[in-house]
Amino acid sequence: MVGIKSVFEYIITGIIPLLIGGVVIYGLLKGVKVYEVFVEGAKEGLSICLRIFPYLLAMLIAVAIIRESKILEYFINFISPVTNIIGMPSEVLPLVMIKPLSGSGALGVFTDIITQYGADTYIGLVSSIIMGGTETIFYTLSVYYGSVKIKNIRHTLWAAMFAEFIAIIMAINLSRIML
């Protein structure tokens, strides 16, 4: 008897080829030169990659400098008494500080937290919700605004930081409710 798990694995394995095939067939039915359009899209994608590369490189270097210089640790030690008042464990602070800068850096910090404290602990749960509910703000702003040469980000940064703060508060409160 075929189990539900194997049915889902079969569907998941086949979904990407089905989607690609469906797009190709739809394009052919509409009279689109699918291969030529694909090649043009790939060329445009490469030119976008070249345009955003300097911004991406600058952000990655900044994150590496912050992590290696131990500035983050000093700041966390300074701010942890305040965050303890709202119930945020100091062990989660590195994740909160790195996530707005770098998704890969945050993933490394998150992995360390889960390895050390476990996923079913308060610290692990807060970290998991923060990881899934927050954004790499500065990375996103630098890449997307930089690629289209926008210098004045206006209220975007403040709105994103406010959303980040609310997501962190919600992560703390949801974790308390769930445990």
Score class of each variant (00 low, 15 high):
Leu107Trp: 09
Phe138Asp: 02
Ile85Gly: 05
Phe8Thr: 12
Ile25Cys: 04
Ser104Asp: 04
Leu50Glu: 15
Tyr144His: 13
Val2His: 02
Gly21Tyr: 02
Met131Cys: 06
Ala163Asn: 06
Ala163Gly: 09
Tyr117Asp: 11
Met131Ile: 02
Met161Phe: 09
Thr83Cys: 09
Thr140His: 06
Leu50Lys: 11
Ile4Glu: 11
Ser6Leu: 14
Met97Ser: 13
Gly108Asn: 15
Val82Trp: 15
Val37Met: 09
Ala42Glu: 09
Met131Lys: 14
Val126Thr: 02
Glu135Gln: 14
Ile85Gln: 09
Gly14Thr: 08
Thr83Ile: 11
Lys70Gln: 07
Gly124Asp: 05
Ser90Tyr: 06
Leu72Ser: 13
Gly118Ala: 03
Tyr74Trp: 13
Val109Trp: 09
Gly22Asn: 01
Gly146Ala: 01
Gly118Tyr: 01
Phe8Tyr: 06
Val82Leu: 13
Ser175Arg: 01
Ile76Val: 14
Tyr26Cys: 11
Gly124His: 12
Val63Arg: 03
Ile123Asn: 02
Thr134Leu: 07
Gly133Asn: 06
Gly22Ala: 00
Ile48Gly: 01
Val39Ile: 14
Leu60Ile: 12
Val23Met: 13
Pro81Tyr: 02
Leu56His: 06
Met1Pro: 13
Ile137Gln: 10
Ile15His: 04
Leu125Ala: 06
Ser104Asn: 10
Ile168Lys: 02
Ala163Leu: 05
Gly41His: 00
Gly87Leu: 03
Arg51Val: 07
Thr134Ile: 01
Ile86Cys: 14
Val39Pro: 08
Leu174Gly: 01
Ala62His: 06
Ile61Phe: 06
Ile137Thr: 07
Thr111Arg: 14
Ser90Val: 03
Ile85His: 03
Glu40Ser: 02
Ile4Thr: 14
Pro17Phe: 00
Gly108Trp: 14
Pro81Leu: 15
Phe75Asp: 10
Phe38His: 13
Arg67Thr: 08
Ile79Gln: 01
Lys149Val: 12
Thr115Pro: 00
Val24Arg: 08
Val32Gln: 11
Ala64Ile: 07
Ala42Asp: 04
Lys33Pro: 05
Gly31Cys: 05
Ile169Asn: 05
Ser102Val: 01
Ile113Glu: 09
Met170Val: 07
Gly105Ser: 00
Tyr35Pro: 04
Ile130Val: 04
Ile123Asp: 01
Lys149His: 07
Thr156Ile: 10
Met97Asn: 08
Ile66Glu: 11
Leu125Glu: 15
Leu95Arg: 12
Glu91Leu: 02
Val109Thr: 11
Leu95Asp: 08
Gly22Arg: 03
Pro94Gly: 08
Ile61Arg: 01
Asn173His: 12
Ile98Gly: 08
Gly118Met: 04
Leu19Ile: 14
Arg51Gly: 03
Leu19Thr: 15
Cys49Val: 07
Ile79Thr: 01
Glu73Gly: 01
Asn84Gly: 07
Tyr144Lys: 09
Asn77Thr: 04
Ile4Asp: 15
Thr136Phe: 11
Ile16Asn: 05
Pro81Met: 10
Leu60Tyr: 04
Ile79Tyr: 06
Ala159Glu: 13
Pro81Glu: 05
Ser69Asn: 13
Ile113Val: 10
Arg176Ser: 14
Ile66Ala: 12
Tyr35Asp: 03
Ser69Tyr: 05
Glu164Ser: 09
Ile166Arg: 00
Pro17Gly: 04
Tyr26Val: 10
Ile113Pro: 06
Arg176His: 15
Asn77Pro: 13
Ile25Lys: 11
Asn152Phe: 14
Leu50Gly: 10
Leu179Cys: 08
Leu28Pro: 03
